[in-house]
Nucleic acid binder design. Sequence first.
DNA 1: ATGAAAGCGCTAACAT
DNA 2: ATGTTAGCGCTTTCAT
Lengths: 328, 328
Amino acid sequence: MSVAVTIRDVARQAQVSVATVSRALTSPDLVRATTRERVLAVAADLGYQPNLAARGLITGKTGNIGIVVPDLNNPFFTGVLKGVQNQARLASHAVFVADSDEDPAAEEQLVRAMAKQVDGVILCSPGIDEQQVRELAESTTLVLLNRRMRGVPAALMNSGSGLRQVIDHLVALGHHRIAYLNGPRTSWSNKERRRGLRIAVQRHDVDLVDMGPFPPRYEGGLQAADLAMAENVTAIVAYNDIMALGVLARLRDRGVRVPDDVSLTGFDDLMFGALCQPPLTTVAMPVVPAGRLAVDLLLDRLANRDAEVRQDELDTQLIVRATTAPPA
Amino acid sequence: MSVAVTIRDVARQAQVSVATVSRALTSPDLVRATTRERVLAVAADLGYQPNLAARGLITGKTGNIGIVVPDLNNPFFTGVLKGVQNQARLASHAVFVADSDEDPAAEEQLVRAMAKQVDGVILCSPGIDEQQVRELAESTTLVLLNRRMRGVPAALMNSGSGLRQVIDHLVALGHHRIAYLNGPRTSWSNKERRRGLRIAVQRHDVDLVDMGPFPPRYEGGLQAADLAMAENVTAIVAYNDIMALGVLARLRDRGVRVPDDVSLTGFDDLMFGALCQPPLTTVAMPVVPAGRLAVDLLLDRLANRDAEVRQDELDTQLIVRATTAPPA
DNA sequence: ATGAAAGCGCTAACAT
DNA sequence: ATGTTAGCGCTTTCAT
């Protein structure tokens, strides 16, 4: 067990008051160099680690940040978490993580539970409604990730642009009739993608077949594949990679060749999209940078509460692999 | 920002002392029912949330647990994290997470940094040596996951048994000459798998070609594939799924058919093993249950420091899919 | 059954 | 430059 060496042990051993020890550690310029060195030496010798909870009690800062994600099994969110974790470490902050299991009620409760122990919370792709998010923002410093809302700082990825790049790519290849397989209608991500879609479609005058919504999973793709083929499209744009993989599997089973008979794109650039056969054309989401950005936004806000609310958007990028080709 | 309602606000409003409020919340039997209800009502009304840091300062318990993993991008560890997170929530504990980026030095430092803020730490697949782990175990309550060490509680998965099941399966199909593609020589997981391998091999009298080590990644598989084929084996047992996927890709490029020309197995049962073509025969590791188990072990240990050190092992299970068949 | 008071480990005035 | 003191919000004796 921890030997529980406190600031007093250090003070005694170094022959100074606890205040001096505290200062030597947190505001080194306030103590004479020789004293400081002696204190620091003793602290190191004793293996003294300040009790952050006690410190936080008085400073009002915990040095912790929290992150709430819908699902830790989703590589999208663990990518974000990785970025958050990296950047937090650079700023000497520890991170609390909670998984809401896609349950909005849990989401709300988890943020509240964290609030007391952290300086702020990063809320990823929240399923709760705007009103609830605003209430949470009252109880703690909040930064949103992958959702935009007036007045709340947010780390965003421009998925609209990603989808525009997809359509541009398909049109350049010569496609005119394209299916879009919707994800959940209510999700902010799906709305953003459709927005990009609408813009691109207007620009190019292509036939868009707007299908779904489908579950944003492998099974959703299996189901969508046949429906899309019945629409005589030459290209299928799936809501995300996993759905695209389901489409790919179903098409293969039916003997439909990709990309010879039909082109297919995903979204997210999860690792296995590069490893499947044929490798998937998709859009890379900068999830790790987004996690880092969210930490920066949070720390900025903590440092300067009156600054303007930042909502920064990171670029997405089309990754052309082997599931797209000119139509037959 | 948090409205900072403290126990004193509740006390004043409920016309009792802070001590009574404290008791109403933590030892309800010590206060009269009517008083308790009044206090609780006021607390709820004011939206009072006890400051856990302050509570921890006096009780010596934080209500937090920590977990340190080598890589948050690895689905294996996020599965564990998911289990940890679930179980911790059931026990009303929050979880700190840290990612060491496979760096042993960081691993050690992260555990130490966490130690003060948590009741105990779950250390996953540590890369540090036994001596260092023991030192860490001095500074906090430690539970290992995916590594066994005398005297330290551990949540384990029987990967030896998994590999035995793989060999039994291959032998039953009629294979006699089998390659094993080693992961990192120093890793506990690889040692365990080889142990299972040795036992199975002795029992069946098969020719084992022990190859590697290879990087436990896709690239490792690409590299290993040609070497394995040069050994004239009829089956390849990869250290893990990702490596197996690399092997699969390389074999396909060379025109070697799986499983017709050669059988192939992975290990871990990551999602994309089921989605690739052909779907991968592999061994399922109970990562989520292992995470839960680790939390149980930790809480048990916290509750009863003198109890015997538990090292529980969960069963692994062969998942037969389509990359294994009788040899040509 | 309840209250008063001490103190967990620390920082921040306020002294000197 | 350093020490003294008063809390931060809470639990827990010890009284009553």
